[in-house]
C-alpha cells in the first residue's frame, strides 16, 4: 500500500531540526500555573472583543423593542416600587427606608445571581466559539462579567433617580462603593470561571447553582432589613436573623449597599469579602491549572 516516494511520518520527524524544542512558546500550554495565568492575561488583552460582545449581548436582548436597554432600568424601577411598597406595609416600615433598601438590594443581587447563573453555562453556551476559535477561556468570563456590569450600570440610573425622591444622607466614605464593586466583580469572575469549568464536566451543577441562588435570595437581606430583625425584641426572631452572618452573600451585599445608602460601613463585611476573594481565586486557579485545557474536550 505504501508508495516508496512518500516520506513516512516518522522519517519526516527525524529530518526536522533539533533546535525547535527550545523556541519560546507563544502560547503557554499544559497543566501549569503559567498557562492558567497566561489564559487570564491573554483574555484581558482581547478587551475589544469581549467589550464589544458584552455590549452586543445587551443590545441583542432588547433589539427591535422601542425602548431598548431602557427596559433594564424600567423593569428594576417597577420591581423596586412594587416590592418596596409591599414590604414597607408587611414589615410596617417607612417607605423611605424600605424602598431604597429593596432597590439597591435588587441591583446588587442582580449582579451576583447573574454571574452565578450564567457562569454555570458560560462554556456550554459557547460551544461553537470554543471549538472553532483558539481564544483563551477567560474571554468568555470577561464578557459575562462585563455584561453584568453593564446591567448594573443601567440599574444604577434608577438609583440616581431614587436619590431625588428619597434623599439619602450620603457621606464621602460612600466612595467605598467603587472598590466594593470591583471586589464584587472580581468575585463574580472567579465564581463564573470555577462554576463554568465544573458545570461543563458535571452538567448537574447548572440546576444546582440555580436552586442555590434562588434559595440564597430569600436567605439574604434583600427585601428584609437585617439590622431591624437582628434587634428585634423577640429573641427567636433575632437569633434567626443573625444566622445571616453565615451567608457569604450578606457581606458582598453590605459592602456595596451601605455606601450607596449612606450607612455606616462595618469592617467585618470587608474582611469576609477579602478572605473569600483570596480563597476563591486560589481555588479557581488550582482548578483552572488542572482542567483549563480539558474544557474544549468537555463542551
Amino acid at each position: 500500500m505504501t508508495v516508496p516516494a512518500v516520506v513516512p511520518a516518522d522519517v519526516e520527524q527525524q529530518v526536522a531540526p533539533g533546535s525547535v524544542g527550545s523556541v519560546a512558546t507563544a502560547q503557554l500550554t499544559g497543566s501549569t500555573f503559567g498557562a492558567a495565568v497566561s489564559d487570564l492575561r491573554r483574555g484581558w488583552e482581547q478587551r475589544s472583543l469581549w467589550g464589544h460582545l458584552g455590549w452586543q449581548d445587551i443590545r441583542q436582548r432588547y433589539r427591535r423593542s422601542f425602548l431598548g436597554p431602557i427596559w433594564i432600568s424600567l423593569t428594576m424601577a417597577v420591581t423596586a416600587i412594587a416590592l418596596g411598597t409591599l414590604y414597607a406595609g408587611l414589615f410596617d416600615n417607612d417607605l423611605a427606608t424600605q424602598l431604597p433598601h429593596v432597590l439597591v438590594g435588587f441591583i446588587v443581587w442582580g449582579f451576583i445571581s447573574g454571574c452565578i447563573n450564567e457562569g454555570a453555562e458560560v462554556f456550554t453556551s459557547n460551544v461553537g466559539l470554543i471549538t472553532h476559535l483558539p481564544a483563551p477561556l477567560s474571554v468568555h468570563i470577561y464578557r459575562l462579567v462585563w455584561r453584568q456590569t453593564l446591567f448594573f450600570a443601567h440599574n444604577l440610573v434608577v438609583y440616581v433617580v431614587m436619590l431625588f425622591i428619597f434623599h439619602q444622607d450620603l457621606k464621602w466614605t460612600g466612595l467605598a462603593v467603587i472598590p466594593a464593586f470591583l471586589l464584587l466583580a472580581l468575585n463574580g469572575a472567579w465564581a463564573a470561571l470555577l462554576l463554568g469549568i465544573v458545570a461543563t464536566r458535571f452538567r448537574d451543577f447548572v440546576p444546582i447553582a440555580q436552586s442555590v441562588v434562588q434559595l440564597a435570595f430569600f436567605l439574604t437581606p434583600i427585601v428584609w432589613i437585617y439590622d431591624e430583625l437582628a434587634r428585634s425584641p423577640n429573641p427567636a426572631i433575632a437569633e434567626r436573623a443573625k444566622l445571616a452572618e453565615f451567608n457569604p452573600f450578606l457581606h458582598f451585599l453590605e459592602i456595596v449597599r451601605a455606601p450607596l445608602l449612606g450607612q455606616d460601613q462595618q469592617l467585618r463585611h470587608w474582611i469576609v469579602v477579602l478572605a473569600i476573594t483570596v480563597v476563591g481565586w486560589a481555588l479557581t486557579m488550582v482548578v483552572l491549572r488542572r482542567y483549563r485545557a480539558r474544557v474544549s474536550y468537555w463542551v
Binding site: 500550554t29 483558539p134 485545557a293 474544549s296
Partner: peptide
C-alpha cells in the same frame, strides 16, 4: 491550539486564524 494534546506536546508560534466554519461568531 483549540485542543491541547492529552499526551505528547504541541507548540504553536504565531497568530492562528482558523477558518473551519464560516458562520461561527
Amino acid at each position: 491550539g483549540i485542543y491541547e494534546p492529552t499526551r505528547g506536546s504541541a507548540v504553536i508560534n504565531g497568530r492562528v486564524a482558523p477558518v473551519f466554519d464560516l458562520g461561527v461568531g
